[in-house]
Nucleic acid binder design. Structure first.
Lengths: 230, 230
DNA sequence: TTTCGATTTAAACGATTGTTTTAAACAGGC
DNA sequence: GCCTGTTTAAAACAATCGTTTAAATCGAAA
């Protein structure tokens, strides 16, 4: 009985991705409330560590609702990832690369990377969730890389190719791109370590996005100049 | 009764770090077997995800043994970290910095960092455990940073200070050190992403420790040269 | 050999997990 | 207004977790 109801709901959701027609208003409210609460909890505790009880408690709904609306815990997680991809695609449009000097493009790319890493707003849980996916990849990880990382990586490689002036091997350009990404990523991956290594006073003074992006850009421009020399 | 026995054992262990005198052979065997099995399990599943049942099963001992020898799960984890620290100190001795040119010291430091990151031997679980500590810090994380990361970080900052020649602000040297560490770290943190971004043929050809360390060192030397200019 | 403390064992405890069940509350069509 | 299908609520489910308990077992001193 109840199972058939859930299965029909599940297949209905899979068929239409964008528009969802819910029978009435009340269910749509609970459903979106669960979805909104699940993201931060999954990000903070990880998939295994997160509990549906905590998610439902912060959402203010009953525990059984997640089973009714999403089938089970994994179904809810898939929906969270799906919503995350849509949200981030709109929030972080890839910077326009055509009408600037490559130095400015590089600066803009580093700025975007660092902004994604060091975001402390209400949507910081999205980055946290992506970081967890990098360490514990699930079947959705590959599509995440293709949709989010590949465009920025290609743009980065292209921009660096304009900066080295000479024709370097492809893998050298890739290494330069990874050097750029790695420097940005460290200020999130190593944030806990930095918090221990660097006193708070220095951190608040010299570890803002602006200072860090200028430093990383300077490092990469110096490297590009050096690789341009015979 | 039993509690007092355990407490005395616990304090006995804390007092003497190096030499352990166990009453008989049998207990020492079980204890070391638990310790040997716990490391890989903690690394693979994380602290919260690992279960003492699985650890004891792979060790072939009773479940209550971990309570008897280590107090509780966290006590066992602390001992694992302690043993890890001793093992890694012997396997990766900090490079001697005194009798070389700073360029060579930097190269050696980058080599050490990359070797720690990309190790694929039987002891890879140690690095995996450290990476998990960086994202999900447990109460032992701070001591890990102090004992593991701080020495290398200081050595890195000092070496970079010799390379820039001019007197730069302290935070700039720190940023340069983090740039170095970040580039090395990315080839582990982003390994899953690189596996999707770069075809396997290129990966096996140009992503060995030797190529990567030379590249990263070259980037940082170029940056230091640039920062030395007026 | 006997005795006693140290160690291991099997079993169970209480807490927490994801999930299911049963009944009540709600909406709209007749 | 009643009835049918949908949604929510409270409770309970079985499984698993870390931890504890009480008895059995072992090793060596007496």
């Amino acid at each position: 009985m109840v199972n058939s109801v859930k299965n029909s709901l599940q297949s209905q959701r899979n068929s239409s991705d964008e528009i969802e027609i819910r029978p009435n208003e009340r269910s749509c409210d609970t459903r979106s409330r669960i979805l909104a609460s699940a993201g931060p909890v999954f990000a903070a505790q990880g998939y295994a560590g997160a509990t549906v009880r905590e998610i439902c408690a912060t959402a203010g709904v009953n525990i059984a609702s997640v089973g009714y609306h999403f089938g089970d815990k994994l179904g809810l997680y898939r929906e969270v990832i799906h919503a995350l991809r849509l949200a981030r695609a709109k929030r972080f449009p890839t910077p326009n690369t055509d009408l600037q000097k490559p130095q400015d493009t590089l600066q803009a790319l580093v700025n975007t990377l660092l902004a994604r890493m060091l975001i402390t707003e209400e949507a910081a849980w999205e980055t946290e969730l992506l970081m967890r996916e990098m360490q514990n990849p699930t079947p959705v990880f590959e599509s995440i890389v293709e949709d989010f990382f590949r465009p920025l990586f290609d743009q980065l490689t292209e921009t660096l190719g304009l900066l080295v002036k000479t024709d370097l091997p492809v893998h050298t350009l890739q290494h330069l791109a990874f050097s750029t990404v790695g420097q940005c990523l460290y200020y999130r991956v190593g944030a806990q370590a930095i918090q221990v290594l660097i006193p708070e006073r220095q951190r608040t003074a010299n570890y803002d996005i602006e200072s860090l992006s200028q430093h990383i850009t300077a490092v990469m421009l110096a490297a590009c100049d050096n690789f341009a020399k015979p």
